[in-house]
Design a binder for these strands. Structure first.
Lengths: 338, 338
DNA sequence: ACTCAAAATCGAACCGGTTCGACACCGGTT
DNA sequence: AACCGGTGTCGAACCGGTTCGATTTTGAGT
């Protein structure tokens, strides 16, 4: 293993001089800087991360806590992870990926041992038990998902209220009078998935204001149960002309259900989903959708986190709570009702 | 930050004694051990990872290199990642997830800076440029995917030859005489995805030995092109009674294609895929399939890697190249031909 | 009571960086 | 000639663990 001492020796200077030559934190003669850089190159020197972190208490690593819950759609989570990971690298940070079922103790472990400079929490629930420890950790943290109490933590989430309104307004403007909203299953909500309520309540309010009928339903998030649920739903509301889907599994299952029933969009039914474009491509979903922007949310969270880590924003400065305005991507699955 | 010095002071012993009390590497009186443990608990002491890694040159972190290529099915990759991550935690290791497009320089970075104790490479291609650096890194490494030259590296992969034979044999035993094999697109092969050839060649050999006709085809890996390709394929071989699918996207697209054509399995067509059970559930695929066991492969790779890291297997001991025998999961999509 | 090995503990050194304070050297003022 | 500030460099200390060698304490055997 080649150390900075070896570099210093090769350049004929002291260790501290070599260090300053590399960091630029004190003025160094051109001659020395040149010789040091030369030595670094020929010896293939790379600083030891452990030693550096010990000396500077900075690791250039960000902890990423992702929970893979049975009742959530794993492929959707991947987009968040990639958004975080790619942006982190861009900013010079690596990612410590933690998928422990017990996120709380995992958080303590990586935080207390000072393996990381900051933490991104995905999939944050309304009363997320991890938040308490994140606040205590005295390390910057950023959340994707809106908890009840955002105090002291930077929060990023889709504007689900706006999403609900946009969906309803879009169909209303086309002339629909009776529509259905399919949400996540009950236990996602029980676990604190408040975004389900946020979208649904906003949709209900918009529907009332526009004077149209909105049926709301919680559907399973697993195959093949969700297919049956969709069928039952369409049977129950034969006059509905629009379908709003806030449930990835339901969206994925819908094409074959429609096909079985001999229905097509937008002729027989107008459909709007809420998922990412990437998701739509993966599952070849032909429905217009509210973009859930997982990569963008992950990216924003990391950017803010790094600003805190690097002191561009002081720890005293108030936390931000930022909502991404949802775009509606038109894939031609909506039209005026027959 | 509470250090081992604080613990030692609280327990009334020296730092070294506290360290030995915690590691158990020298005998310690019960009284002291008790007082030290007490102090650890009350002070909430957690060792500083940087300091420990500096002293022991062990980080308890495993690097995981995953490449997300446009033409590969991202959700499938997630299963490998989770297999690696969960097993690593079980063994006391954390995961540094690297998704850089340039895997080679990322490998150098994390390896040279000694952030990690070992490396798992996913998605290894036949002539993977990352291997050269992994060998030079002088750190244990494990691969998922079979390269041409396995020298010095532990390799884990599905037995694709056996998979090809099993698929063909299964349909042959049921009495099929003409079948189709759908592979990945040409550019997956060009990039070094040798597993495509391995399965296909074994299937062809088995078909010849059994004296049955096997048509082979490279299909796109993106929607909706793959659907058109499937249609064209079924048009081109109207007498084929069996379909083997070594292409996730094609498998995902097949149900709606069959539906459009008014075909059903196993009545009109016997179908066997090659993907994970998790994948089948996500897409509610009703086809019998060769289990590609991503979680198991990831888990095996990590287990072997940790054995190397912890010296249970000396660095001199020869590398293993282990093939997982593929299971056929029967979902009732095969039957004797009409 | 005396010896001797084993058990228990301590101090110091080390891992590989960074950073502080000191110092030497330089050209330019007064 | 004495003084000055700025520049470039060095030695030493420090970050927080682990580990080696030495020393003290203990207890068993005679």
């Amino acid at each position: 293993m080649v150390t900075i001492g070896d570099v210093a020796k090769a350049a004929g200077v002291s260790r501290s001089t070599a260090s300053y030559a590399l960091s630029g934190k004190r003025s160094i003669s051109d001659a020395v800087r040149l010789r040091v850089n030369e030595a670094v190159k020929t010896l293939q020197y790379t600083p030891n991360a452990g030693a550096r972190s010990l000396a500077t208490s900075q690791t250039k690593v960000i902890g990423l806590l992702a929970q893979f819950l049975d009742d959530e759609f794993a492929p959707a989570m991947l987009q968040y992870i990639l958004g975080v990971s790619n942006t982190a690298r861009e900013l010079g940070y690596d990612i410590l990926l933690v998928t422990d079922a017990d996120g709380t103790s995992a958080l303590r472990r990586i935080s207390d041992s000072r393996m990381i400079d900051g933490i991104v929490l995905l999939n944050v629930a309304e009363n997320d038990p991890r938040l308490e420890h994140l606040r205590a950790a005295q390390q910057p943290g950023a959340l994707v998902g809106l908890p009840k109490d955002c105090d002291g933590l930077d929060v990023f989430d889709l504007d689900f209220e706006e999403a609900g309104r946009t969906m309803v307004d879009h169909l209303h403007r086309l002339g629909h009078r009776e529509i259905i909203l399919i949400s996540q299953p009950q236990h996602v909500i029980d676990r604190g998935g408040a975004y389900v309520w946020r979208l649904q309540n906003a949709a209900l309010a918009a529907a009332e204001a526009r004077n149209l009928t909105l049926h709301t339903v919680f559907a399973p998030s697993s195959q093949p149960e969700v297919g049956d649920a969709l069928n039952g739903l369409l049977d129950a509301h034969p006059n509905a002309t629009g379908l709003l889907i806030n449930n990835e599994a339901a969206a994925a299952a819908l094409p074959s259900v429609l096909h079985q029933r001999g229905l097509s969009t937008p002729k027989d039914l107008s459909v709007i989903g809420r998922y990412s474009d990437e998701f739509a491509r993966t599952f070849s979903l032909p429905f217009s959708s509210i973009e859930s922007a997982p990569d963008r949310l992950g990216s924003m969270a990391v950017r803010q986190l790094v600003r805190r880590i690097e002191g561009e924003i002081g720890p005293a400065e108030p936390n931000v709570v930022r909502f991404v305005t949802p775009d509606l991507i038109d894939r031609g699955s909506t039209a005026p009702p027959r």
